[in-house]
Design a protein around this nucleic acid. Structure first.
Lengths: 143, 143
DNA sequence: CGGCATCCGAGTAGATACTG
DNA sequence: CAGTATCTACTCGGATGCCG
């Protein structure tokens, strides 16, 4: 699979965007970088999977999420859910029944983020084979 | 700043894409997930910054990157550069002069990834204020 | 059921010193 | 200049047990 061609025109556009972003970053003198901050969350593999699954199954309960997001521990799941809720990506609804029922779903904001995440995931899915090949070849060369 | 409206149509498209992605994941039974793998790298804050800076300054040397990517240590920088090189995102060229000169630049593949990264960064920049507001509000409510 | 508190082990980051 | 080596410190994840 070949990487899609990137035109010089695109590179110029890219450079402009970067200039804009970095200009902003320089002005703040690195005290706070929104990209780092938001990406730090975005980047977390568990958070990503949680959001993706909530895009697939619109409403989910704690234990179902735990089942789907295979391998996550209670602790980490509840941490991530709390953070994601706090940052506005998802909504938590508790029904005071016995036993308690808690449902999670994406907010409007969360859906906006999901869009971006999917684009990135598609890229990742598309090129992951190539990355793995690159990696193996590199490892061989190292020896 | 308001979140752009997401139409129902978009949500349907999204669901389809997710179905496709998750179908693939289920088939592999979670033994290996390309999304996790590639995102794990993508997600790393240092790697992101390195790639973004290399999109801005096309060719950079070790110490210049270290200067730009503020706060990174020698160890971590060299680790990240090696991984990024190994996965095919960037090219390392060594000029055997005295003292040695080593230059890093994005590969074609790296540029392809940069595109996606920029889109995500733009999103992050655009909505980071809202995320921070959400977070603060949530923290207050917790107390 | 849906968590939280606690503990522990592993991995990772950072600082520093050193080298081809 | 471009890293490597080493050591320490700390965070993070996983497991377990408990509780409303």
């Amino acid at each position: 699979m070949e990487v899609e061609t990137i035109t010089e025109n695109q590179k110029v556009k890219t450079a402009k965007k970067l200039k804009k972003m970095f200009g902003h970053m320089d002005r703040r003198q690195m005290e706070y970088c929104p990209i780092r901050d938001v990406m730090a969350l975005a980047s977390d593999k568990w958070s990503i999977l949680i959001i993706l699954y909530l895009g697939y199954y619109p409403v989910m309960r704690f234990n179902l999420i735990k089942k789907r997001v295979y391998g996550i521990s209670n602790k980490v799941l509840s941490e991530r859910l709390k953070t994601l809720e706090g940052d506005g990506y998802l909504k938590r609804t508790m029904y005071p029944e016995v036993p308690v029922r808690v449902e999670y779903e994406l907010t409007h904001f969360g859906h906006s983020y999901l869009q971006k995440l999917i684009e990135l995931s598609e890229w990742a899915t598309q090129y992951s084979d190539q990355v793995i090949r690159n990696r193996k070849r590199f490892q061989k060369r190292q020896r």
